[in-house]
Computed example of a mutant assay.
Amino acid sequence: MAIAQLSTVVLDCPDPDALGRFYQQLVGGELKQEDHDWTHLTLSSGTDLAFQSAPGFAPPNWPAPDDSQQFHLDLTVADLDAAEQQVLALGARVLDAGDPSRSWRVYADPVGHPFCLCKD
């Protein structure tokens, strides 16, 4: 039996509202700015994302075998090529496009958190 249920994943960042808007455009949901230090994205899946102001934020280095990537999100999509164009237009950048036959690709959000687009 589990002790708890995951309800929210919190990402440190320099601008919670801006990063919240990026992820809202990426995964949908309802965005609510709680205050200047915290923005909350309620997802239809039941798990939420929140964005917390972190003075001195330093993005993870990826890939770096001697440094932590901290965490990453795996997001499923129907069409990798189409989704890639959309996330790049939102401000993401490619970290690892990989072999074209591979079913996933790695990106960084606008402040450097890695995330993967994975073929559904």
Rank of each mutant, 00 (worst) to 15 (best):
M1R: 04
M1V: 05
I3Q: 11
A4F: 14
L6G: 07
L6R: 11
L6W: 08
V9E: 03
V10W: 13
V10Y: 05
L11C: 02
D12N: 15
D12S: 15
C13D: 03
C13F: 05
P14D: 12
D15H: 15
D15I: 02
D15M: 14
D17R: 11
G20R: 08
G20Q: 12
F22Y: 10
Y23Q: 04
L26D: 00
L26Q: 03
L26E: 02
V27M: 09
G29R: 13
G29S: 12
E30Y: 10
E30F: 05
E30P: 03
L31V: 07
Q33A: 14
E34F: 14
H36W: 08
H36F: 08
H36E: 14
D37Q: 08
T39D: 09
H40T: 04
H40N: 07
L43G: 03
L43W: 12
S45V: 01
L49Q: 00
A50W: 12
A50L: 03
F51A: 12
Q52E: 06
A54C: 15
P55R: 05
P55C: 01
G56M: 04
G56E: 04
F57S: 02
A58K: 12
P59M: 00
P60H: 09
N61E: 15
N61G: 06
W62C: 06
W62H: 08
P65I: 00
D66K: 14
D66N: 04
D67G: 04
D67M: 10
F71Q: 06
L73A: 08
L75R: 10
L75K: 06
V77R: 06
V77L: 02
A78H: 12
D79G: 03
L80M: 06
L80D: 07
A82S: 15
A83S: 15
Q86I: 07
Q86H: 15
V87K: 01
L88C: 10
L88Y: 11
A89Y: 13
A89P: 02
R93P: 00
V94I: 15
L95N: 10
D96G: 14
D96R: 12
A97G: 11
D99F: 02
P100W: 11
S103W: 13
W104R: 14
W104Q: 08
R105C: 04
R105Y: 14
V106A: 12
H113W: 13
P114W: 14
P114F: 11
P114D: 05
P114N: 07
F115Q: 04
F115G: 04
F115E: 06
F115K: 06
C118M: 13
K119Q: 14
K119N: 03
K119S: 09
D120K: 12
D120Q: 13
D120M: 01
D120A: 12
